[in-house]
Protein backbone atom coordinates (compact mmCIF):
# COMPACT_ATOMS: atom_id res chain seq x y z
CA UNK A 1 0.00 0.00 0.00
CA UNK A 2 1.28 3.42 -0.89
CA UNK A 3 1.80 5.66 2.05
CA UNK A 4 4.03 8.24 0.51
CA UNK A 5 3.18 8.64 -3.13
CA UNK A 6 0.35 11.09 -2.69
CA UNK A 7 -0.40 12.78 0.54
CA UNK A 8 -3.49 14.47 -0.64
CA UNK A 9 -6.87 12.97 0.21
CA UNK A 10 -8.82 11.17 -2.47
CA UNK A 11 -9.76 13.68 -5.14
CA UNK A 12 -13.39 14.49 -5.66
CA UNK A 13 -15.09 13.11 -8.70
CA UNK A 14 -15.97 15.53 -11.43
CA UNK A 15 -19.35 17.18 -11.49
CA UNK A 16 -19.02 18.88 -8.13
CA UNK A 17 -19.02 22.41 -9.34
CA UNK A 18 -21.43 23.32 -6.58
CA UNK A 19 -18.54 23.08 -4.13
CA UNK A 20 -17.08 26.52 -4.30
CA UNK A 21 -14.01 26.19 -2.17
CA UNK A 22 -12.10 23.19 -0.98
CA UNK A 23 -13.19 23.57 2.60
CA UNK A 24 -16.68 24.91 2.41
CA UNK A 25 -19.26 25.69 -0.19
CA UNK A 26 -22.97 25.56 -0.87
CA UNK A 27 -24.44 22.10 -0.95
CA UNK A 28 -27.73 21.49 -2.66
CA UNK A 29 -27.50 18.00 -4.10
CA UNK A 30 -27.25 16.16 -0.76
CA UNK A 31 -30.51 17.70 0.45
CA UNK A 32 -32.24 16.72 -2.75
CA UNK A 33 -30.94 13.19 -2.34
CA UNK A 34 -32.48 12.87 1.10
CA UNK A 35 -35.61 14.73 -0.01
CA UNK A 36 -34.82 17.45 2.43
CA UNK A 37 -34.46 15.17 5.44
CA UNK A 38 -31.62 15.98 7.78
CA UNK A 39 -32.10 13.27 10.40
CA UNK A 40 -32.24 9.51 9.87
CA UNK A 41 -35.57 7.78 10.49
CA UNK A 42 -33.73 5.27 12.62
CA UNK A 43 -30.34 4.87 14.21
CA UNK A 44 -27.71 7.14 15.62
CA UNK A 45 -24.62 7.03 13.46
CA UNK A 46 -21.29 8.37 14.58
CA UNK A 47 -18.48 8.79 12.07
CA UNK A 48 -16.93 5.54 13.25
CA UNK A 49 -20.09 3.47 13.60
CA UNK A 50 -19.51 0.34 11.54
CA UNK A 51 -22.09 -0.72 9.01
CA UNK A 52 -22.43 -4.11 7.39
CA UNK A 53 -25.02 -5.25 4.85
CA UNK A 54 -27.14 -8.18 5.91
CA UNK A 55 -28.43 -8.88 2.43
CA UNK A 56 -27.89 -7.73 -1.11
CA UNK A 57 -29.96 -5.26 -3.04
CA UNK A 58 -30.58 -6.57 -6.53
CA UNK A 59 -31.76 -3.33 -8.03
CA UNK A 60 -35.50 -3.83 -8.08
CA UNK A 61 -36.35 -3.04 -4.49
CA UNK A 62 -39.02 -0.39 -4.13
CA UNK A 63 -38.02 2.62 -2.12
CA UNK A 64 -34.30 2.25 -2.68
CA UNK A 65 -32.43 4.94 -4.56
CA UNK A 66 -29.21 4.24 -6.45
CA UNK A 67 -27.22 5.66 -3.50
CA UNK A 68 -28.93 3.20 -1.14
CA UNK A 69 -27.88 0.33 -3.39
CA UNK A 70 -24.35 1.62 -3.65
CA UNK A 71 -24.13 1.64 0.14
CA UNK A 72 -25.48 -1.90 0.40
CA UNK A 73 -22.90 -3.05 -2.15
CA UNK A 74 -20.08 -1.24 -0.38
CA UNK A 75 -21.09 -2.64 3.00
CA UNK A 76 -20.78 -6.28 1.99
CA UNK A 77 -17.60 -5.71 3.99
CA UNK A 78 -17.94 -3.62 7.14
CA UNK A 79 -17.34 0.10 6.63
CA UNK A 80 -17.43 3.09 8.91
CA UNK A 81 -19.87 5.91 8.26
CA UNK A 82 -16.89 8.14 7.47
CA UNK A 83 -15.63 5.70 4.84
CA UNK A 84 -19.05 5.35 3.23
CA UNK A 85 -19.33 9.14 3.05
CA UNK A 86 -15.87 9.42 1.52
CA UNK A 87 -16.46 6.72 -1.10
CA UNK A 88 -19.85 8.08 -2.12
CA UNK A 89 -18.49 11.63 -2.00
CA UNK A 90 -21.44 12.81 0.04
CA UNK A 91 -21.54 14.64 3.37
CA UNK A 92 -21.75 12.39 6.40
CA UNK A 93 -25.12 13.92 7.31
CA UNK A 94 -26.57 12.70 4.02
CA UNK A 95 -25.10 9.24 4.52
CA UNK A 96 -26.68 9.07 8.00
CA UNK A 97 -30.12 9.70 6.50
CA UNK A 98 -29.62 7.05 3.81
CA UNK A 99 -28.30 4.58 6.39
CA UNK A 100 -31.34 5.23 8.56
CA UNK A 101 -33.54 4.15 5.64
CA UNK A 102 -31.48 1.00 5.10
CA UNK A 103 -31.50 0.15 8.79
CA UNK A 104 -35.25 0.68 8.89
CA UNK A 105 -35.74 -1.66 5.93
CA UNK A 106 -33.40 -4.28 7.37
CA UNK A 107 -30.65 -4.05 4.76
CA UNK A 108 -27.85 -3.19 7.13
CA UNK A 109 -26.85 -3.61 10.72
CA UNK A 110 -24.83 -1.09 12.66
CA UNK A 111 -22.34 -1.35 15.44
CA UNK A 112 -21.81 1.84 17.37
CA UNK A 113 -18.40 2.43 18.94
CA UNK A 114 -17.85 1.60 22.55
CA UNK A 115 -18.87 4.25 25.05
CA UNK A 116 -16.11 6.24 26.72
CA UNK A 117 -16.66 4.25 29.91
CA UNK A 118 -15.06 1.26 28.17
CA UNK A 119 -11.79 3.17 27.84
CA UNK A 120 -10.63 1.44 31.00
CA UNK A 121 -10.39 -1.92 29.24
CA UNK A 122 -6.73 -2.91 29.48
CA UNK A 123 -7.04 -5.56 26.81
CA UNK A 124 -7.99 -2.91 24.31
CA UNK A 125 -4.88 -0.88 25.05
CA UNK A 126 -2.68 -3.93 24.85
CA UNK A 127 -4.15 -5.02 21.53
CA UNK A 128 -3.79 -1.53 20.07
CA UNK A 129 -0.25 -1.06 21.37
CA UNK A 130 0.82 -4.45 20.03
CA UNK A 131 -0.74 -3.62 16.69
CA UNK A 132 1.00 -0.26 16.54
CA UNK A 133 4.36 -1.75 17.45
CA UNK A 134 3.97 -4.21 14.58
CA UNK A 135 3.36 -1.43 12.04
Amino acid sequence: MSHYDDLRPEPRGSGHDEWLDEHAGPVVRPYVMTRGRTEPVRGDFSLISLVVAGRTATGTEPGLDPEHRTIVRLCQDPQSVAEIAAYLDLPAGTIRVLLGDLLDKGYVSVQNPQPETDFRDRRMYEAVLNGLRAL
Binding site: M1, S2, H3, D6, L7, R8, P9, E10, V27, P30, T38, L47, A82, E83, A85, A86, Y87, L90, P91, A92, G93, L135
Partner: peptide, 12 residues
Protein backbone atom coordinates in the same frame (compact mmCIF):
# COMPACT_ATOMS: atom_id res chain seq x y z
CA UNK B 1 0.49 5.61 9.32
CA UNK B 2 -2.75 4.80 7.55
CA UNK B 3 -3.23 1.54 5.68
CA UNK B 4 -5.43 3.35 3.17
CA UNK B 5 -4.85 6.61 1.38
CA UNK B 6 -6.37 9.33 3.51
CA UNK B 7 -10.04 9.76 2.73
CA UNK B 8 -12.04 12.90 3.08
CA UNK B 9 -15.43 13.14 4.70
CA UNK B 10 -17.61 16.18 5.09
CA UNK B 11 -20.13 17.34 7.63
CA UNK B 12 -22.77 19.99 7.21
Amino acid sequence: VSEIRPLRTEEF
